[in-house]
Design a protein around this nucleic acid. Sequence first.
RNA 1: AGCCUCAUAGUGUAAUGGUAACACCACAGAUUUUGAUUCUGUUAUUCAAGGUUCGAGCCCUUGUGAGGCUACCA
Length: 557
Amino acid sequence: MSDAPKLDFIREIIAADLAVGKHATVITRFPPEPNGYLHIGHAKSICLNFGIAAEHAEVGAKCHLRFDDTNPEKEELEYVESIKTDVKWLGFDWGEDLYFASNYFSYFHDCAIHLIREGKAYVEQESAEEMRAHRGNLTSPGTPSPGRSLSVEENLQLFASMKAGEFKEGECVLRAKIDLASPNMNLRDPVLYRIMHAPHHNTGDAWCIYPMYDFAHPLEDAHEHITHSLCTLEFENHRPLYDWFIENCPVPSRPRQIEFARLSLSYTIMSKRKLLELVQGGHVGGWDDPRLPTLSGLRRRGYPPEAIRHFCKRIGITKFNGTTDVALLEFDVRDFLNHAAPRRMAVLDPVKVVLENWSTEPLAVVEVPNHPQQAEMGNREIPIAAEVWIEREDFMEVPEKKFHRLAPDRHVRLKGGHIIRCTGFEKDAAGAITVIRAEILPGTVGADAPEGVACKAAIHWVDVATGIDAEVRIYDRLFTVEDPDAAEGGFLSVLNPESLTTLAAKVEPALAAADAGFSCQFDRTGYFIADARDHQPGVKPVFNRTVALRDSWAKRG
RNA sequence: AGCCUCAUAGUGUAAUGGUAACACCACAGAUUUUGAUUCUGUUAUUCAAGGUUCGAGCCCUUGUGAGGCUACCA
């Protein structure tokens, strides 16, 4: 668990800034737009920004949580609340530093007026299409539009009219006057304000003009005295514009934008557009559907926040645009759960075993450790009687070569309990096993197999009379949902689509068989800690499994 | 096409100009009352070509490949 103390390039820049006294402290920010739920990709940014603040606590470093809510058409209060919940769940705390870009609307407006007075902004009355045409393209420069030659007075008046609601949406915008010939398209007189006659979740109807990201963001950062504004690579080309606003507006501080590569995970849908589509289209149960890579989905699935944080630390921060294998994430989940999760037994596709000589040893309870290595987790007592459920796949009428579990005349241990020997079985008309007959070997609880008895495996079991040992979650490669873009039957992130239906078929009878407290979900954490990953269609799943107790970590934080 | 950025095992990430390494994955053995865990071992890496240098993954040039940019989204 020793993490390399190496500094990534961002932390190096910050350390250097601190060392030369450029800043006395560090202030970062996590600035989501409240237009959806946070997902695993956001976790990287959250861990980076809050992590850096925590690492420099000795100089009073902080990380702000700021909602970048400058577009009333896309944003909702529900998202604000979910984001706060998810950041907290991940283990971070913004303290008093919760902000909304919408609270700075009048500051943005002041800056716009300032730019107009300086002759650095003007009102454009062309349509979006005309502006696009006049902006030129990647190889040819743009050409001046009529608005560019308006006087300061005219612009001031026009902008006041915009703000007063005297224009309809799309009739005009405020643009910065920078460089229509710049090879960087972002500098070709970008739009600062557009008209939107839409109520804002925070400011209501107070405004009908709303600032664009490029204009608002640097001002938000400066206003909050952010020292290092960390964002993803796609904003690289925006940095000159970011700096231009810092240079030309009345700002109280001079933040620096630094870009890093966003997280891209194999087999995982990370596009907000697609996630929205899945949720709104009813393809999944909601933003917290356990099949989704949203933080709330991962939470329901049983992913411990510690594992996600450790994963983020391990993948590092660079400018390299790669795709991280989801196996890296899964390792951290398994690694954490393996140490932290108490174990339970579960049977998903049950077949009954009748212990025919049960009355010869009327033991009613066996004591089972909650964790195979960590004795301090204690033991629990499980009732057992003459009938138990075992997994259907733990029995083979005709065992194949490396099969070590139950088969006619073979021995197997009921995990934590007795060694049993199969004495027979019954089938129904269709040829399916209906019941297995067995006998217990007296005195084998907590003891090795007697001389001459070959017992090479211990299987999960559940007492028929008293019900199951635990609430269960299924661990499998179910990161997945159907791809709305695929013609049909396409999966975006399943390696093994069959496993979904296979497991569904297994869970149904299990649900029917068990009454009290049994609930199965299509989660991937806890059922198989590792092996289900190797499922291939048509290949039998690995029999050994670990069931981690859900509540023990789902309730954290 | 112009501009910006990036390039190290299958994946991610390291390496003051001085022996290319760590983790994951994969595979093979040992232990195991979870075919898990644990332990041991194995395979495999600097995009290409030039240049500077005693010495280049690192510096320079060119090329190749990948990503980003022509929203009144963020």
